[in-house]
Design a protein around this nucleic acid. Structure first.
Lengths: 212, 212
DNA sequence: CTGCCGTTATATCGTGCCGATACAACGAAA
DNA sequence: TTTCGTTGTATCGGCACGATATAACGGCAG
């Protein structure tokens, strides 16, 4: 259901069609994980059937097919849905009231923060939550990490040097994530300095301002 | 195919049956991610058909069914495979020569280190690789992380404080992972101190760690 | 103008993962 | 002796994902 949340989050901002949606999903979801159309379109259909998104416009612009009526008729003969006398239907989706309700529901789902990607996605959509709800999400994530820490300690002695190194690194990452959560909570309480705190800047003057 | 690799890695050490296998898989794969039987048994069947694992023993111990012959016959009538006059077959699997070949193949697959979990799994199985092969895996992982870093920089300016915080943290984690890879390479070249280097021990009171 | 290519755009199919669940045997407590 | 918890094997439905087909469009080179 993580793709449902991402789609609803994007549509809550503005109306989009499937292709643009999948491009933005790749940025909103995990880095370096391209989103498959085989996930997006079925998800859109599912959400539409559930009444959480609706097709808002089927932009049929423009004139006769440029290849002449022949191609259009051929396509129609094959049972394809060419828009006769116009461009291929570009279905634009928008969110419904029920969809906005589901969005908040998914954002607050405690099981969603089990993974780093799940928490990151929710963090990117924090603007749709109240301060109290944001705090609840952070608390749930901290609970997950603490539980993970305990489980890591429970693990028996490890066979070789590399397994040991792996466990140690995992523990360090968890500890660092917990520290970061504390920072996030403070940022939310004192929204003064917008930039300097969370995560040290990876390099020189270019900082996290990306480029502009 | 990541579950194939984990199964082969466990069977390379000793022979196991499905249930014990799935318990150990949970420790070998990502923390806090229980392994579904719906993944393990189909995977075992697939690997067996491919000749990479083989059923090595079908321990049929003990006596008549405790509920009497009635239950046994009922089960047989339903097409169930109750071992008539004995305990339910406990299939013990072992790895084959072809399986060991596939194990190394999967360990060296460059696409496998795309995720942290994929690299962690391979790191835990480093003992099945030569030093040169281990270095190749580390190099592949570094390439992945560097590419990810570039992609993170490419990303446009972000809408709000939380998206910015998320990106900054992701960048910091990537940078830390790259530093860790350097450590791992040095550990492999100078296998002197087995413990002290990678990731601090969580017991020490100097909790700062990580950032230095 | 025409053919070709790259991009935008929607959709489907097969494979395989995963959570839930059923089936089954056994030990031990209640 | 009934009931529970653990060990143990297996299947089902839903769905995520990579590959692929179809289609329209813009641009550009010949």
């Amino acid at each position: 259901m993580t793709i449902d949340l991402a789609i609803l989050g994007l549509l809550a901002e503005c109306e989009l069609h499937g292709y643009e949606l999948s491009k933005r999903l790749a940025d909103l979801l995990e880095l370096g994980a391209p989103v498959s159309f085989g996930s997006v379109y079925p998800a859109l259909g599912r959400l539409e059937r559930a009444g959480q998104v609706k097709a808002v416009e089927a932009g049929r612009i423009r004139l006769v097919p440029m290849t002449g009526s022949l191609a259009g008729e051929l396509a129609a003969a094959r049972g394809r849905l060419t828009n006769p006398g116009g461009r291929r239907a570009k279905k634009v989706y928008g969110i419904t009231d029920k969809g906005e309700q589901r969005l908040v529901e998914l954002l607050l789902d405690p099981g969603g923060v089990a993974t780093a990607a799940g928490f990151g996605l929710r963090l990117s959509l924090f603007r749709y939550l109240s301060p109290a709800q944001r705090r609840a999400v952070i608390v749930a994530r901290r609970s997950t990490l603490t539980h993970l820490q305990a489980e890591a300690d429970r693990l028996g002695p490890w066979v070789d040097r590399w397994s040991t190194a792996r466990r140690a690194h995992e523990a360090a990452v968890i500890a660092e994530d917990l520290r970061w959560l504390d920072e996030l909570e403070q940022v939310d309480e004192h929204p003064d300095h917008t930039q300097s705190t969370t995560g040290q800047a990876p390099a020189e003057p270019a900082t996290s301002g990306v480029n502009e």
